[in-house]
Each structure stands twice: as C-alpha cells, then as structure tokens.
Design a protein around this nucleic acid. Structure first.
Lengths: 206, 206
DNA sequence: CGGCTTGCATACTGACCAGTATCCGGATAC
DNA sequence: GTATCCGGATACTGGTCAGTATGCAAGCCG
C-alpha cells in the first residue's frame, strides 16, 4: 500500500503541487524574478517535472489565471444561490468578492503581477479581461436581482456599479499592500458610501 | 557656440535625459525586464553614462519616485492655492489628482510597477508610503478646508475620505490598463456617488 | 599650454534563467 | 515476464543582465 497511485493520479498530484508552489513563489518573488527552478524546487521537483506539465512559463500564468478566477466565480455563484444574505444589501456580493482580497495578500500580489504582465502581453490581457468581465457580469446580475427583490431601481446600470465595486476593491488591495496602516474597514466604508449615494440619487432627480 | 555648456550643465542634461528615457522604457517594459542598456540607449548613451549618474538601478527607482511625487504634490498645491475652482465641490481636488492618472497611461504603468516593487523591497516601500502619505495629507487638508468654507461637516475624517479617493483612483487606473472599454467617466461617477453618500450620511444619523 | 580631472564609452565578468536534449526507472500492457 | 512508455531528473545551451574596470577625449585650472 505504499504506492497506490496510478501514473495519471501521480502526475495530477505533481501538477497541482507545482501550481500551489507557483502561487506561493510567484506571489513572493514576482512573475519574472521567480524562476522555474524556484517553483519546482519549492514543490520538491526539478525542471523536468515542470515541462512535463506545462508548455512554458507563460502557459503556467494562463493556467493559474484560470484556476483563480474559477475559484472566485464559484464563490460568487455560491453566494448567489445561497439564501442567508438574501435580505442584506446588495453590497454583500461585492463585500464577499473582496473578502477574497482582504486578508489574502497572496492573491493581491498575484493580481498585481498578473495585471502588469497583462499590460504587456495582449493575449494574456484578453484572457484576463474575459474572466474579469465574466465575474463582473455575475456580480452585476446578483446586484440587479437583489435590487429588484427590494424594489429598488438603481439610477445607474448594475454593470457600472459592478465595475465601480471592482475598481474600489482593487484600489483597496493596492492600498493594503503598500500601507500597513490601512483601516480594516476601508472597503466596507467605501461600499457603504457608494450605496448610500445610490439611494440618495434615486430620490433626487438626475 | 557649438559647445556652450559647462561640464556640470552637460551632466545635468544627461541625467535628465536618462530619467526621461527611464520613465518611458520602464513603463513600457517593466522595472525588471527593462535593462540599463535599454534605458541608456533610448537616451542615446551607454552604460557608462548611467553609472556616472546613478549608484544602481534601485537608486534610479528612488529618484524617479521622488520626481513623480514631487510633480504631483506640486500640482496639488497649485490647485490648493488656485482660486478658480474654489466654489466647486471638494471632489475637484481628487478629480484633478487623477487627471494625472487618466490619459496618462505611462504613469499608471509605472505606478503599478513601483507598487509591486515596493511590496518586495521594504526600503522602497517606506519611501513610497511616505510620499503617498504626504500627498494624501495634502488632499485631505484641501478637502477639509473646502468643506469648512461651504459649512459642510464631513461625517468621516478627511484623511479617510482622501484614502478612499486614492484607492478609487488606483483601482480605476488598473481597470483602464486592463480594459479598453472602461467608461470615460468611471472615476467621476464614483466620486459623485461617494460624495452624494457623504452628504446623505450627514443628514441621516449614524 | 600642460597636467589633472571626470563624464562617458567599451569590454568584460559572474550570475541567472528559459527552454532543450537526453536519460532512467518504475508503471503499464500484453 | 518482457517490451514499451513516460513522468520526471540531469546536464547543457544560448542569451540576458547588473555591475565593474579601464580607457579616452574634452573640459578645467594653474
């Protein structure tokens, strides 16, 4: 019972170990300063294992992008179907979305790295954008559904609201990376203000 | 009249040419993928010129940080002393602050690069933070002064408001780098909502 | 004018790294 | 049980880059 794994299982295990190490090491050192050897040795392998599982470093980035966004999308969908927060303000969705960011320094760093990589690699940028759009679309949909339930008519489009929430989250993530004095509830306060503003705008005419 | 420059003047000219090229090249290629040779040759020099003017690549980053923040601080102070926008909403200050960002893709990219560098180099991070704090403090002061002029009592501290404005600006900057479909007025709309929220919060109790 | 200084150029070094070629040993298939 | 396959290890290649050492010519000072 020492070696119970088929070859496929073994390789899958290796691959996911590499991905896990990649997340850690790339977040720590940055996309370009972390070498393949850094990543594989962190996982207890060598270069050979890497190239048996990924075509290139660039492909690794893509795979990681996929994994991270899939996780977050799943989290959002879980929230969408969950009943618990239903009566809460729609901001909840955005809040939850960035609970992923807050306290998750690793993902913040990776997000930064991926972003700057994306600005220089158009293929990667398109993939990044596509996934961001999907996530944002989900959140917009949730918001709009919740708003309808409460009988609230947003003065601006849910898509735009979602975009604002994303931008705020990313900005706060940056703030937290740079500054150890960032107020704990910065993002929450911002959401509150924005949604207070939305409520106010509805009352007042355009 | 061919060579009218003293040696000091000549070197100052070289140095500023290098800094200008550094801004362009580092924004284009990223802090670590742009080599010293890339920078110097963009300016029509070679490595020797670089090391005659800067101790190391790291020192170059610091100098650039200084220059950029000095520019922005100056811009903010110009705004603070200017009379033209005095009657406008306090958001003007923040707006102007990020006009520097909007349409200034180069600085956005550099900001991203500096940020991610800062997360890995504590000395640099502290310098970055110090300058950010100064800029944010300025904006908070302006906001607070304007609010007093209008007789408006902000429900939350001007420092926190300034921090929000910064975060939003940075988030929008990221959005714009990643997405060519970012609405032109995203940042403006966000500011509007936030300040509407502030006004509303003042009326409503806590 | 002549020796000294110095800003910049050139050539080089040591280190690092993505990707490739080759090999091995154990799992798989028959 | 033997031949095959293949995940992963090892060794190597070509290229890049920060930083250094040295040279040189043009500016500086007496």
């Amino acid at each position: 019972m020492t070696t119970r794994l088929t070859r496929k299982e073994q390789q899958a295990r290796t691959r996911s170990a590499l991905l896990q190490s990649a997340t850690r090491v790339l977040a720590e050192k940055g996309l370009h300063r972390a070498s393949i050897d850094d990543i594989t040795s962190d996982a207890g392998f060598t270069k050979g294992a890497f190239y048996a599982n990924f075509k290139s470093k660039e492909e690794l980035f893509l795979v990681m992008l996929d994994e991270h966004f899939a996780e977050r999308l799943a989290a959002v969908e879980r929230l969408a179907s969950g009943e618990e927060a239903l009566a809460q303000r729609a901001a909840r969705a955005g809040q939850d979305f960035t609970d992923a960011l807050r306290g998750n320094e690793e993902w913040c760093r990776l997000f930064l790295e991926f972003t700057s990589h994306a600005t220089r690699h158009d293929g990667f940028r398109k993939e990044f954008k596509a996934r961001t759009d999907a996530l944002r679309g989900q959140i917009a949909a949730i918001y709009s559904q919740r708003a309808a339930e409460v009988g609230f008519e947003p003065p601006i489009s849910p898509e735009l609201i979602a975009r604002m929430v994303f931008s705020m989250a990313h900005g706060v993530a940056i703030d937290q990376l740079l500054d150890d004095e960032t107020p704990e509830d910065l993002f929450g306060s911002m959401l509150l203000l924005v949604f207070a503003g939305l409520a106010g705008e509805q009352a007042g005419a355009a």
